[in-house]
Each structure stands twice: as structure tokens, then as C-alpha cells.
Design a binder for these strands. Structure first.
Length: 155
DNA sequence: AAACAATTCAACCGCAGGACA
DNA sequence: TTGTCCTGCGGTTGAATTGTT
């Protein structure tokens, strides 16, 4: 293994190699969409140059898979979808791509974001551990001091 | 209306692993 | 077997948006 990253490690919005970073413009979206519709994705590394984009292939692939793909279902998650995510997460854990594969039209990135911003908090409010889905011990005991007392007893 | 805090989510990074020469 | 290229994944960041005081 071991090679230079495909993209600049700089956090600036345009790398020293001349590649653009940050939010995509409508014009860039159009270029990428039209290119893939005509030629297919093919090689992501060479796609930006062929499509006339000042982006790295990785950025193009991410934009396509998470936003531009025609089969993506946008908008809020339904109650059924949310329940499905919780159920799948209890079995698969943080395997977001595996969960996304079972939810047509949803991307792993979208599910991961939704989990971290909505579902995780909902489970915590319900007194459930978002990792194990089991009732939280500290929540049941009501305070951290009681928890430390318990751990002292166990030692 | 303004300032500040909290939340959301698009986009990034680093790494793992498959394919291939 | 080893090194390189490429793709895909999970975790994280930070700008934009929304809510609260």
C-alpha cells in the first residue's frame, strides 16, 4: 500500500493542484450529470478532466452517488423508513452502506447523517443505548454517582 | 432586530481492500 | 509476492440554516 492521497490534504477551498473543493455549483452539477448520462461514470479518476471539471474524481463520485443519481429519493424520512433503519442498525451496526442497500433511494451518507442527528437522540431520550440498543445503565440508575457506587461494588 | 446557540447535512479525509501488472 | 491504482466506506468537519433569548 502507501501512495499519495488522490486529493490535496489542504483544507482550503482550492487545492494547490488547481482542483476546486467545497460546495458544488449548478453549472458543475450540470456538467457532471450530462457527462455521466452520455458516457457513463467509467473511470472516476479521469472523469473530471473529460467532463471539464476542476474537481478530483473522488469529489465527482461522491456528488453523483449522494446527490445527482436519478434514483435518489430526497426529502424527509418516513416513519417506516426510520423504523427500518433502527431495526437494521440493531443487526448491522454502523454498516451504513449495508443499511442503505436495503432502503431504496437512500444513500449511506444520508442515512448516517439522519442517524446521528435524529435517531441517535431519539434513542437516548428513550433511555436506550444507540450503539447496543439496550437500556442504558446510567439512565436506569438516574445519576452518575449511583453508577460509580455500583462500579465500586463490582470491583 | 440583533446576537448567540444549536442543529443540520453536504462534502471532506484517511484508510482498507480488491484488481491487476 | 510486491507495489500501484482505484473504489468504497465510516468518521468528521464546518458552512448554512434554524431556533432561542
Amino acid at each position: 500500500m502507501g501512495r499519495a492521497p488522490a486529493t490535496s490534504s489542504s483544507s482550503s477551498r482550492s487545492s494547490s493542484s488547481g482542483l476546486k473543493k467545497g460546495p458544488w455549483t449548478a453549472e458543475e452539477d450540470l456538467k457532471l450529470r450530462e457527462y455521466i448520462e452520455q458516457h457513463g461514470a467509467g473511470n472516476w479518476r479521469t472523469l473530471p478532466e473529460n467532463a471539464g471539471l476542476q474537481r478530483c474524481g473522488k469529489s465527482c463520485r461522491l456528488r453523483w452517488t449522494n446527490y445527482l443519481r436519478p434514483d435518489i429519493k430526497r426529502g424527509r424520512f418516513s416513519f417506516e423508513e426510520e423504523e427500518a433503519i433502527i431495526q437494521l442498525h440493531s443487526v448491522l451496526g454502523n454498516k451504513w452502506s449495508a443499511i442503505a442497500a436495503r432502503l431504496p433511494g437512500r444513500t449511506d451518507n444520508e442515512i448516517k447523517n439522519y442517524w446521528n442527528t435524529h435517531i441517535r437522540k431519539r434513542l437516548l431520550r428513550m433511555g436506550l443505548d444507540p450503539v447496543t440498543h439496550a437500556p442504558r445503565l446510567d439512565h436506569l440508575l438516574g445519576s452518575t454517582s449511583q453508577l460509580s457506587n455500583l462500579s465500586n461494588l463490582l470491583c
